[in-house]
């Protein structure tokens, strides 16, 4: 990884038309300004990781894996913890 030391007010360029400027530095965060062409997507890393994990979590889960996991979890369950009622009405069509 390339490492550059910068102070508030200083910046650098990536390629000919992406400019990054450090606007403000505090003990726990930095404020960064980005100048880039409008078509270039800029996404916070934690949002990207959440996106990717949501896509992975939405994939089809095999029924035997669901059955195994629920059985495993009910035997390990946290003492005294009960899921609050989510109020989905009883269900027809499921035996």
């Amino acid at each position: 990884m390339l490492v550059i030391r910068r102070r508030a007010g200083e910046g650098f360029l990536i390629g000919p038309d992406i400019e990054i400027e450090v606007l403000e530095v505090s003990p726990t965060r930095v404020k960064i300004g980005i100048l880039a062409p409008g078509a270039l997507p800029i996404i916070r890393k934690e949002v990207l990781l959440t996106r990717q994990e949501n896509l992975a979590a939405s994939r089809n889960a095999p029924p035997h894996t669901i059955a195994w996991l629920s059985q495993k979890l009910s035997s390990n369950s946290v003492a005294g913890y009960e899921t609050p009622k989510l109020d989905v009405r009883r269900i027809s069509g499921v035996s």
Binding site: V47, T50, R51, Q52, N54, L55, S58, I66, A67, L69, S70, L73, S74, S77, T83, L86, V88, I91, V94
Partner: peptide, 21 residues
């Protein structure tokens, strides 16, 4: 939610055979 921005309503199914999922 991220990657599913157009899904804005969900129900939560807690079934006896798959509890506590």
């Amino acid at each position: 939610i991220p990657a599913f921005e157009d899904q804005t309503a969900f129900v939560f199914l807690d079934q006896p055979q798959t509890h506590p999922l």
